[in-house]
Design a protein around this nucleic acid. Structure first.
Lengths: 155, 155
DNA sequence: TTAGTTGTAATCATATTAGTTACAACTAAA
DNA sequence: TTTAGTTGTAACTAATATGATTACAACTAA
């Protein structure tokens, strides 16, 4: 069933492209020294269609976060895992557009409130978005990998 | 035309229900002592269909942020403007579901990364969301009104 | 009684996401 | 130089949300 219901109302959010991309990078980092990490390999771990992974990898490649071997196949990190933050990933994979908050179009310029609503609200929305994004800058793929090792050692 | 395009990719975000609701409250606060603030009145300022405003007002009423006069019409604030934060509004209007970040479904439990991706990632996503939401708690409808007065006095 | 408004269901157009199919282009290895 | 496996990418689809809109019953003060 659909997992996004509450009181019969459905809502949008930051798309799973972001977590898919993070998962992709963590899988590459975890396995790149042992296996050829192909889109099929990653897709199997993430549990999405391989084409979704290839599209994700193209975004990550364009940002120089990964290298991809065309033909033979396989992806590797193009930077140190400690130098790739969640914000880097978030920025690249189109999980939101520039603005997190979707502002209603064309408020009435003949009403004092409509005329100025952007002026009074925009800076606060930007501050909220920036606070969220700054948190993402505090976490790297290496951080996730270290945490992952703790979990896998306990298996 | 569509206002959400970038490089042919389209993205989701926090819906305009939030800014519509903030605009609604600011319009009520600004005009409630002078006019009967009806859904048509607000809709004209926000520039959306009146039914969208009525639905918004129902959400705000359920949270005891506004009073609505059925029959005769008109909405007023049910609390002091200084006691209504942007977070209060955000919480009630279903602009997102509980989680801001949409996580991909069913990562592969037979892969060490897939099995633990939620464990390593969830707390960071929650921290980012909380940072955003906390910023919204710092701003009240009264703050917006005070800023609005500065702009309108300059007209 | 009436005029205006709210409350709410129902339907629609538009748009996005993720899934999927298909296949050309590429590359290393046999 | 053939082949097997993979990437790169276009095209299409199903599922679903949003906001617009229509419609109308219920309500209430004048």
């Amino acid at each position: 069933m659909y997992n996004n219901e509450r009181n019969g109302v459905y809502e949008l959010k930051i798309t799973s492209r972001f977590t898919v991309a993070v998962h992709t990078l963590l899988a590459i980092y975890t396995f790149q020294d042992k296996y050829k990490v192909t889109s099929d390999f990653i897709a199997s771990s993430v549990n999405v269609n391989p084409v979704v992974i290839r599209r994700t990898l193209q975004n990550l490649k364009a940002a120089k976060l990964v290298d991809i071997k065309a033909g033979i196949g396989g992806a590797t990190l193009a930077k140190n895992a400690a130098d790739i933050t969640l914000y880097d990933v978030y920025s690249v994979v189109d999980c939101i557009n520039e603005n997190l908050f979707n502002f209603h179009d064309n408020p009435n310029p003949d009403c004092p409130v409509g005329k100025n609503i952007h002026s009074v609200l925009d800076k606060h929305l930007t501050a909220a978005q920036t606070a969220m994004e700054n948190e993402l800058k505090n976490v790297t793929i290496e951080d996730l990998s270290n945490q992952l090792k703790i979990y896998t050692n306990n298996d």
